[in-house]
Design a protein around this nucleic acid. Structure first.
Lengths: 197, 197
DNA sequence: GACAAAGCGGAACAGCGCTCCGTATCTTAA
DNA sequence: TTAAGATACGGAGCGCTGTTCCGCTTTGTC
C-alpha cells in the first residue's frame, strides 16, 4: 500500500501535505498580485502575500514563467479547446479563425502586462513564450489549414508567425488610441486572397 | 560680444568646452554599446566605455530615452524625410506606404532590442515612444491619406494605431521562423478595400 | 517517541538605476 | 597672469530587485 510498493520505479515518497498546501496558497496569492501589479510584480511581494519565504516560492516555481504558466494554465487550455469547437460551430473556417483570435486577444489584454512579458527576452520569461506557443500553435494551424482548404485565405502563412504577430500586437498599455483588436482584424483580413474566386 | 550682451534674455553663459566634448564621447560610446549589448545595456557600461562617471551621463541625458533618441535621431529623421520622397517617386501612394513601412521595419529590426524597448512601460523609455511617434505619425498619416484618396485602401485607420502596430510586430528576437516584414505586409494588405472598384 | 527526509525561511550576495555633494576644471575679468 | 566664481565631473552610496544557500522546523514512518 505504500507508494514504494509498486516495483520498477524509484521509491519517491509522496509530497508532503504542507508542500501541497503552500503550492496552492502561492498560486492564489500570485493570481491576486498579478491582477494588482502585473506579471512583473516583485517575487518578494508574492511571497509576502502568501505568507511564505523566498525559498519556498523558488522551490515550487523555479522560474517566473513556471508561476505564470501555472496561474494561467486553465485559461490557455480553454482557449486551445475553443479552437476545434469554433471550427465546428462558426459559419466558416475563416469566421472561426477570427473568433478564435478574438478570444486570444481578450485573454492577453485582460492580463496586465502579459503580452509584454511574453516577448521579453530577459527575466526568465522564455519558458512562458514556449508554453503558450507549444499549446496554441497547433490549434491555430488547424484553423489556418481549414480556411486555406475552404479557399477563404491564401496559403503560405505559418501558424507560429501568426500567433507571435497577434501576441505582439497586444503589447502596450491601454491607450484608447490603440486598439489591438482592430489591428488583428486587419492582419487577418490581409490573409484573404487578392481575388475572390 | 559676450553671450550676455544681447538684452532681454537670461545671461546664460555658453556651455563649457569639456562638456561639449563629453557629450560627443558619450554619444559614440552609447552607439557602440547599443550595438554590442542592446539599448538595455547598463548605464554604468556606457559610462565606463566613455571613460566618464555616472553623474556625467545623467547630466547630459537625464533619462535613458534621451540618450537613445540622441543616438538614433539622424536615422529617424531620415525615415521621416523619406515619406514625402517616396510619395513622389513610387508608382502609387500604396506602394509608397509599403516601401516606407519597410524602411521603418529595417530601422527597428537592425537596432537590437529597440522595438522591445519602445513598448516597455518601465525603464524610462516612455519619452522614446513619444519622440518616435511624434515625428513619424504625421508622415504616416500623409501616406495613408494619399492612399485613401487614390482609392487604394479603405478609410478609417489611424496613423497612430498603424505605427504602433508595425512597431509592435518588430519586437522579439531574431527567430528565423518569425519575419516581421511578412506580417507588416499582411497588415498593410488588410487595409485594401474588400472589393476592388 | 525517535529518526530521517522533505520542506521552509530569510539572510546574504550581486546587479542595477539614480542621487548627491566634495572636488576638479574651465572661463572671464581685472 | 591670475584669482574668483561658475560649471561640470566622479563615484560612493542608497534602495530595490533576483537568486542562492544552509541551518532549522515540520512531517511521515517505524
Amino acid at each position: 500500500m505504500t507508494p514504494a510498493s509498486q516495483p520498477g520505479k524509484v521509491p519517491a515518497r509522496a509530497r508532503r501535505a504542507d508542500a501541497l498546501r503552500n503550492q496552492q496558497t502561492l498560486l492564489t496569492a500570485a493570481a491576486e498580485v498579478f491582477v494588482a501589479s502585473g506579471v512583473d510584480a516583485p517575487i518578494r511581494e508574492i511571497a509576502a502575500r502568501a505568507g511564505v519565504g523566498m525559498g519556498t516560492i523558488y522551490r515550487h516555481f523555479p522560474t517566473r514563467a513556471d508561476l505564470v504558466v501555472a496561474v494561467y494554465r486553465h485559461q490557455v487550455e480553454a482557449c486551445a479547446e475553443a479552437g476545434p469547437a469554433l471550427l465546428a460551430d462558426a459559419g466558416s473556417p475563416f469566421a472561426a479563425l477570427r473568433q478564435w483570435a478574438d478570444l486570444f486577444v481578450d485573454f492577453l489584454v485582460t492580463k496586465h502586462g502579459l503580452a509584454n512579458a511574453m516577448r521579453s527576452d530577459s527575466g526568465g520569461f522564455e519558458a512562458l513564450h514556449t508554453y503558450f506557443l507549444d499549446r496554441l500553435v497547433p490549434v491555430c494551424a488547424r484553423l489556418l489549414d481549414a480556411a486555406v482548404d475552404a479557399g477563404e485565405i491564401s496559403p503560405g502563412t505559418h501558424a507560429y508567425e501568426l500567433m507571435r504577430g497577434i501576441g505582439n500586437l497586444c503589447a502596450g498599455g491601454d491607450d484608447p488610441r490603440y486598439e489591438p483588436r482592430r489591428l488583428v482584424g486587419l492582419l487577418l483580413q490581409g490573409l484573404r486572397p487578392s481575388r475572390p474566386s
